[in-house]
Structures are given as C-alpha cells and as structure tokens.
Write a protein that binds this DNA or RNA. Structure first.
Lengths: 348, 348
DNA sequence: TTGTACGCGTTATCAT
DNA sequence: ATGATAACGCGTACAA
C-alpha cells in the first residue's frame, strides 16, 4: 500500500479534503461526529500528514530552532535542557539542529528559516565570523547564546547572551597569581582556532601582566592535532604530558576548560605528582565533573540555567515586541575547589 | 523584499523555471553560460530553494537519519561522530534528530520518513517497547543500535547492533566476586524505568547467585527523583551518600554507568574513605572519564567505534541488498582500573 | 538546449 | 458544517 494521503482519507470517509484538514487541525467549524469518524479512519489507516506539504502551505509555524555547532560539547547539555523547557513552557515547538563543524551556521539558519517557517532561532555556542550582510539576511528573530562574535560585526546587528570570557579568564589567572603562583602554565587552544579559547588566553596574559609576572612562552601550551578535540580530556592529558616532559618550572596549570583540566590532573597524577601539593590546577566552565573530580577542580562556573532562561526571555522579547539589539553579559563565579593551593607562607 | 522563489530568479534571468531548476541541481542538459548567469543572480539575490517544496516534490532523498532519545547522554557522543563520518563516507546526508523523552520514537520516525523521504534510519539508544504492528509500519530500512528491545517484539522484525548488557554486567559483578568481595552494593536505576538499567541489575543478581553470595536488598540502591537524571554523576553521588549513611556493611560498589561511578567515588571520598582501600568501585560504559578519573575506574568498555561502523554497514546492507533481520552482538571488555582491589590475601 | 504545464500533499478562501 | 478549488515552491515530462 502506498502511503495514504489526505485525499485517500477524504475518499474513504466520503467527505472533502478540507473537512479532513479541519479534523486534523482542530478547527472549530466541524461536526463532532464527522470529526470522530475521520479521526478513527485516520488511525485505522495509519495516515500521517506530510510535514513538507504542511510547511510549504503554512505561512507560519510555532517553532523555535536551536542551532548548535559540534554537539559533542557536554557544556551545552544543561543549557539545552533549560532551553527546551522554556520554549515548551511558552507553547512553542522546539527544534534542535546540529550544524557540522565545517558548515556555515548562518547558511543553515537561512535554509531552516524557509523550510520550517521558524518563529525564532537560538545560536548556541560557536564563533561568529560572518559579514554583517550575511547576518542581515536573517529575517527571523534570532539570538546568540554563549558564543563568541568577531569584532568585525557591528554590535548593533544582533542580540546576545554571553559571559565575558576575557574577564572571567582574567579572574581565574589573577586568582592564581594572588595565591602566590609566579610560574603559571596555560593549556590553550591552537592559536589558529577562531574561538573563545583565544579570549581566555588573552585574559590570562593580561592577568600576568597586571601582576607583574613576565609571560614565559614555554608555559603557553597547545597542540595541533586534527584527531584531537581541543576541549577534550585527552587533549589536556597529552598537552600536560608534554609540558611535564619539557621540564620547565611551574607551579600551576590553568586549563581553558574543565575537560582539559581533568586530563591535566591525570597526567600530573601519572607523573607521580600530587594536586595541589605539587601543582595547582584550574579549569573553566563549571561542569559537573569539576565538582565530582578528586580533588575537586577550581573553576569558573558559568550560570548555565540563568543564561538559558534569559536567552529565551530575550528571544520572546524580540518576537513579540520587536525589540532589537539586546545584549546581556552574565558574570561567572570563581568556584574554589581542592585543586589549587596558596604558595604564600602565612596561608600555608 | 519578500523572499525570492525560483520564479523570481527565472524572470530576472529571462529564462524558464526549469532552466533554473536544472542549474541548481547540476543537470547536464544546460548551457554553461546560462547556468553561470543563473548561479550568479541566485547569489546576488540570496535565493535559497525551499526545502519543503523540494522534499514534497522529490520522490527520494539521500538522507539517513539518526534518531536519539535524550541527547544528554555523553555516551553517544563518540558514537555519533563515527556514524556521521561513515554516513558521509558513503555519500549520504546525515540528519540528527533528537526525540524527546516522552515522545514515541517510532511515531517520530514515521513522520520523518514522510517529510524527508529518508533512505534509512538509525535508532540510537533508547528502549523499544512498541507493538510489532507499529514497527512494521516503517517502510524505510532501519536499525536499532545500542538499545534495548522489549521481549514482546519478535526478533525477526528488526536488525540491531547491541551489547549484551546482561552478560557484561554479569562479567563485572562476577569479577568483583572473584576479587573476594562478598558485600557488593549496586547503584541501579529505579525499577520502573524501562531501560537497560534493568538488564544490568539482572546480570549483577545472577553473578551473585552463581558465586553463592546471597543478595542483600539493602545493597540494591536506587532513588526516585524526577529532577535527577538516572545516569548522572549527581545521581550516583546522592545514592551513595544514602548507602553510606545506611551503615550497611559492604566492600564494593557496582555503578551501572561510569557517570554514576564518578558520583559514587566522590561521595565515598567525602566520607573520608579511600578507593580502593576502603571500598572498591566499578562502573560501566568505558567513557573517557573512567580512565581520567583519579583513581581510574574499573569499567566495561563498549566498543563504540566498531559498533557505530557496523551499524552503518548493516544499514547499507539492508538498503542496497534488501537484507533483513541482521543482528550483531558485540562483546565488551572489562577494563581494570585502580578503583577495585582484591580482598584475597594471597593477592594483597 | 530551453520553456510550459502539471502535480506533489496540504491549508485556506470562498461558496454553498 | 461542508466541499471545490486555488495557492505554496519546486521538479520534471513533454513539447518545442
């Protein structure tokens, strides 16, 4: 049997297609009895409306799409949960769409906008480096959440919810300095990666400078390896092993993500050293693992839930009241764990 | 400006719509020059073909969809990466679709099948408890990967790639027994959850039985809490705290996932106890964190990459040669970490 | 090589 | 309350 269409159902029920359509879409102008009859035959024949046809015909939908680049990052898991919840709470449908690493997220958004008649778009994470012109093609309300944006784009062009990676990274590095660490290694992303990793590195550099600590390039560590996710435990592990083998003196490691920090801890532990006695280790993100690791890892906790809620709040502001250009920067919190210790005698 | 359609482009170029269509779809029967002209005006006017219309019109696509229930589980991250890679390697498009916890995955698949003219479907994870009839409605080749299936469904109805959770769980519990542990607690899923958690519990029970160790219900631990993901670190942490407070004697904890094991370790550590000296802890899944945790966690490593590859291989077998009913069960590997110790004197 | 016209499955408008 | 019919945007058979 070929897959049934609305016409088949109409024919079987002896009614017109519009009546069937009305039944499906809960239109008011329909007799209870005919509706029941229709719904029943629909169930019997396993009829399923074709979404493409609906989207084609409908002028609008009630869908909000969340576009996420590289779904692998567990950091977004909590965020997604809240986003989905908030979207549903507002009676909208939630559509998660993953955009692949080499894809252009705007391009994808443009496609989706046409295909699904979206009401709004949330860009989660990623790093925007498009032209303004491209961005302006998006007719649908959208918001950037937790992502970086190149300086090339005028800030007036978009709304966003962010954490100031530069500032928060500075906060962490400064904290390590204030603990008395003079030789602080950083495990960063390869410099050619256009991403938040760059901002976190800059925050570190500035903190060193402000604390009158010269930056030793030997302690700025990263690794180019296509088989390796930059924000993975393995990356932290490998880079830290290299760092240890380099035999440069250092007392603290600042990893630009918690996953990296975990890998760093393991490498240090395997080298027979202890945390924080021999080396202090700090992470970034405030992921669960930072708290459940042994020792718990000092980290920068981003207020994930609040950010997700605010993201949706702003998006609805744009959708319903035509607001534009709303930008909200969330402060993150330095959460002190057991992985960092003070080198200052009075505190020891 | 209203969003441009193929007609607009045709009019602007002074050609027919079919010519534009030919240009877009790389048809051979078209003059290079007109094609160039068309492509250029398309770029200039930011024309984007409407996918709904295409899907509606096209009789088939080259898309393979991966349906995943509850994307939060990081276990699937690696798997997804391989699946995507393999699908692309075979010149198909990859479509990831998340199905929400309360949604019916078959229902979703049926919808998607119509909407996207899918070539194949991979169901990743989840637990199938549908009627055979429902399953048979799926006309598109599909395969179950890494998921459980209710006994109610005839095994002849589907193809699958699995790990025998019962057997592997038995393996782990048996290993703990052989280490001399007599009092082995298990951190399981709430019994009403229809999922692999059940099989892992059963494997544990059987192993105890075969080792002549009576099962103490006080050591079978779980927690009902809707705010808590069963397979999360927090779950493991909370349940283990309860376990410790219950002051039942035990020497080992078997957590039915690595995340749970991490939480368990933390709870034990916070109670001032050591792993594995005071308590042995074992996990399940073979996630990265098991190896990077301190101590590394003894676990059951599922051959994720191989399973993903085999999933796609079988799916293509079904698509291209009409194979049916292929079932492959992968053995998993007991990976011994630092979190478990032997209680037998000779080995101490 | 190119253009015209039809149909994909649905919703919405307009009669009835 | 219901049915015929015109779109929605595109691909393609067919004619030119």
């Amino acid at each position: 049997m070929e897959t049934a269409t609305i016409k088949d159902i109409a024919r079987i029920c002896g009614v017109g297609v519009s009546t069937v359509s009305r039944a499906i879409n809960n239109h008011p102008d329909i007799n209870e009895k005919t509706k029941n009859l229709i719904m029943q035959t629909i169930a019997e024949h396993n009829y399923i409306p074709n979404n493409s046809a609906r989207n084609l015909k409908r002028s609008e939908s009630n869908t909000i799409a969340v576009l996420i680049k590289g779904i692998s990052n567990p950091f977004f898991n909590n965020m997604l949960k809240v986003l989905e919840h908030e979207i549903h709470r507002n009676k909208y449908s939630f559509l998660l769409h993953r955009v692949e690493e080499q894809e252009d997220e705007i391009e994808v958004a443009l496609l989706l906008e046409k295909e699904k008649r979206l009401k709004g778009i949330v860009f989660l994470g990623g790093y925007f480096s498009h032209s303004e012109e491209k961005l302006n093609q998006l007719k649908v309300p959208f918001i950037l959440s937790t992502g970086g944006v190149t300086e090339k784009i005028d800030k007036e062009c978009y709304s966003s919810v962010t954490v100031d990676d530069y500032k928060e990274s500075y906060k962490m590095a400064d904290y390590l300095c204030k603990l008395g660490h003079k030789r602080i290694a950083i495990i960063a992303a390869p410099p050619e990666e256009e991403c938040i990793g760059k901002l976190r590195l800059q925050g570190y550099l500035k903190a060193l400078e402000d604390n009158q600590i010269p930056c030793d390039p030997n302690l700025v560590r990263y690794k180019r390896d296509n088989t390796l996710d930059t924000f993975s435990m393995k990356y932290g592990y490998e880079v830290t092993k290299e760092l240890l083998q380099a035999e440069k003196e250092f007392t603290a490691v600042f990893a630009i993500s918690d996953s990296i920090a975990v890998g760093a801890c393991k490498a240090i532990s395997e080298a027979g050293k202890n945390i924080p006695e021999d080396y202090s280790v700090a992470g970034y993100d405030g992921m669960d693992i930072a708290f459940y690791y042994i020792p718990s890892i000092t980290t920068i906790r981003q207020p994930v839930e609040e950010m997700a809620e605010e993201t949706i709040r702003i998006l609805f502001d744009i959708i319903e009241y035509g607001s534009t250009n709303i930008r909200k920067d969330f402060p993150a919190e330095l959460v002190i764990g057991q992985s960092t210790k003070s080198l200052i005698k009075a505190e020891m």
